[in-house]
Amino acid sequence: MSVIWQQRTHGIQRRKQQSAMLLARLFVVAIIIATTMAAAYLALVAANVHAASRVWTMEQTLSEMYRQNHALWIEIARASSIPVLQERSVQLGYQPAHSVDFLQIGEP
């Protein structure tokens, strides 16, 4: 015969039993609240870690893009440097202008 059964059958005061039940419920509620808060905290931390990871990746990507951008600058500069342009101009048949005449247009 269990203790509880004995308490019930042997006339333990009902008020005492009710307070124990209340305590138990409070305990359960506290655990639920704590679990929810812990879950929320963990979710926040996880989101934080994810965001931080993305920030770090983006910062690295930015650095890489700087490098690609500057590599392109140099590629363009090489293709349009003065010796290259001169060579291409000559290939296209251009010649240095030895005399330049300005067309003077009078005021209307």
Binding site: A51, A52, S53, E59
Partner: peptide
């Protein structure tokens, strides 16, 4: 790679 708290707390983004 720095841990999350590091990334959030410290600014290391270099500027050209």
């Amino acid at each position: 790679s720095p841990l999350a708290d590091e990334v959030v707390a410290k600014d290391i983004l270099p500027y050209p």
